[in-house]
Design a protein around this nucleic acid. Structure first.
Lengths: 338, 338
DNA sequence: CTGAAAGCGCTTACAG
DNA sequence: CTGAAAGCGCTTACAG
């Protein structure tokens, strides 16, 4: 095998094929007609030299990176796994590379550190809630970098957002607890501060209570953080303080795991004594014991829609400012249904 | 706010600071001493102009991309989520960006398509089993691109591999089924063809049987594919064909979900009638019913170790050719323990 | 410690 | 349809 010290460049290919580098570039990109026979010679040379165009040179010359950037607060859990799957597939489908970066939940560690993803290395950015500070959003918007937000709305700038029907999903499942199972003291576990999903779910929760003539009791609202451990601690705390409750709307499925753990450890029967429901319908929800009643959120689709809108922006087309994907209640057994 | 049509370049900064672009480059990279006062002026200019160095230009000039490429067969499931988490954190820690690409399990769709990740846009590649064809590995190795394999060994080239103790982990858990629970007809569900993890686990399974004087019965070995659905179908098939068995080593935890589903649907009591065990210890394992006895694999650490070795290669340092991370049995209830 | 200049490897008007 | 040449925005010897 021929192992050249330096990888072949476009000039090597041009020389070998007996054409100019402009012609090589044209057959590479299909930007202009090239006489078939000439194109053939170029292709042969490319193969013979094992030529791969250097991305940096293309980017520098064309001013297009063909890369999408993804900012996430963290990677873990079934939630981000689904979202990432949707994003990756859609990006690939649209011909873009994907650069990812996690910021770590509260970005206080590096107050004004330059983002590793931005106008200098991507054609556009996808950002999930809590991964960008407001001033960064404003800056990116002001310099015209295509930007799409997921699960976060931002007022003041016209930035496309993809999110899901949190409020109605939450309202439905809480109504179900009340109507089908006669629950009246329903705990709500908030997600992380700043998480819009959580705020909307809380509104749905409150609305459902009020619709059914129940008062919102602040003592029943606690922090679950969309996390197993936090949710577990929250329930343990309610139990320790003897707060009476007959159901828990966990905020999300991840938190529901912690709720189930805490209840089980305390010898509280689910769903006989306390109903437990979640939100998201992660792939494991059916396998919990009892199988989790929850609200299905089309997470993967959020990812693919976000890419779709971002690509539109990059191409200079109009993008939808708000994409609201529907959610749907999934009844299993943890609510009390059989 | 000042919104320039074109983002500032190094030349703009140099002009504004009254120095040469070389000097700007130096304060940017800290490659050479610069008189503090001059450096200060440059910093001011950078801030004032909101200057961000274009990545492509740096890469082209320096011939370093500062980017790691990750090739995965797919993104989904708790397994890849953990691995990705380890990789992302380690890459960021080492100052590299991360470009990811999923190839889709059997790469037959695009026989000789150029990989979107390679010497043209990364300083090195991380590849999980089944994401690269052998000839691609050979090619990448031959051109000297730093490359680290995960859960896959490759003979012929000196390519660092990170993997886990599959065989002993499997042998231990199968031995446990025999010794602690008197199981004698233990099903093994293979992973995908070509998955080395699966081959080693199968050897561990066979070894444990033989050590205990049991014969390997080919009728008890079936394909689970490390997937829920495939595993479920495999068990359903065994059941339908009236093959007698008293335990299932599912291959991995994902498959164990399918096993549990099939058994439950058939009214077979786990673990009373049939013990079920998995491999990996994904975060949901403790929450299954019954809680899953399995083998803990340090997946996140596989990711971070892989980055560590890759960075060594990139820096021209010696890397360890084989990193074998230990696994550990985690006893819960699905085996029959209480 | 600093600057002038070459060079990284492409794309893209501009001519022809 | 094709080529010569400018230019993308940096880094890095080489002088001084």
């Amino acid at each position: 095998m021929n192992i050249p010290n330096r990888p072949a460049t476009i000039a090597d290919v041009a020389r070998q094929a007996g054409v100019s580098i402009a012609t090589v570039s044209r057959v590479l990109n299909g930007t202009t007609r090239v006489i078939p026979e000439t194109a053939e010679r170029v292709q042969d040379a490319i193969r013979a030299l094992n030529y791969v165009p250097r991305t940096a040179a293309r980017v520098l010359a064309s001013r297009r990176t063909n890369t999408l950037g993804l900012l996430l607060p963290e990677i873990s859990g079934a939630f981000f796994s689904s979202m990432l799957r949707g994003i990756e597939a859609a990006a690939r489908g649209a011909g873009f590379d994907l650069l990812i970066h996690t910021t770590g939940e509260p970005r206080h560690a590096l107050p004004h550190a330059r983002l590793p993803l931005g106008e200098h290395n991507t054609d556009g950015l996808l950002a999930f809630t809590a991964s960008l500070e407001n001033e960064e959003i404003t800056r990116l918007y002001s310099i015209g970098l295509p930007l799409v937000l997921m699960h976060q709305t931002f007022t003041g700038c016209e930035i496309p957002t993809i999110t899901i029907e949190n409020k109605s999903g939450a309202a439905h499942i809480v109504a179900h607890l009340i109507e089908a199972h006669g629950r009246r003291r329903i705990v709500f576990l908030r997600g992380p501060e700043s998480h819009e999903d959580s705020a909307w779910r809380e509104r749905g929760y409150c609305e459902a209570l009020e619709t059914h003539g129940l008062q919102v009791d602040p003592a029943l609202i606690s922090l679950g953080g969309f996390q197993r451990e936090t949710a577990q601690a929250a329930i343990q705390d309610l139990l320790a303080r003897d707060v009476a409750f007959d159901a828990v709307f966990s905020g999300d499925d991840e938190a529901a795991l912690g709720v189930l753990t805490a209840l089980q450890a305390a010898g509280v029967a689910v769903p006989q004594e306390v109903s437990v429901v979640g939100f998201d319908d992660i792939p494991f929800a059916p396998f919990l014991s009892p199988p989790l009643t929850t609200v299905r959120a089309p997470i993967e689709q959020v990812g693919s829609e976000a890419v779709k809108q971002l690509v539109r922006l990059i191409r200079g087309e109009r993008a939808d400012l708000l994409t609201l994907l529907p959610t749907e209640m999934v009844i299993r057994n943890s609510c009390g249904c059989t």
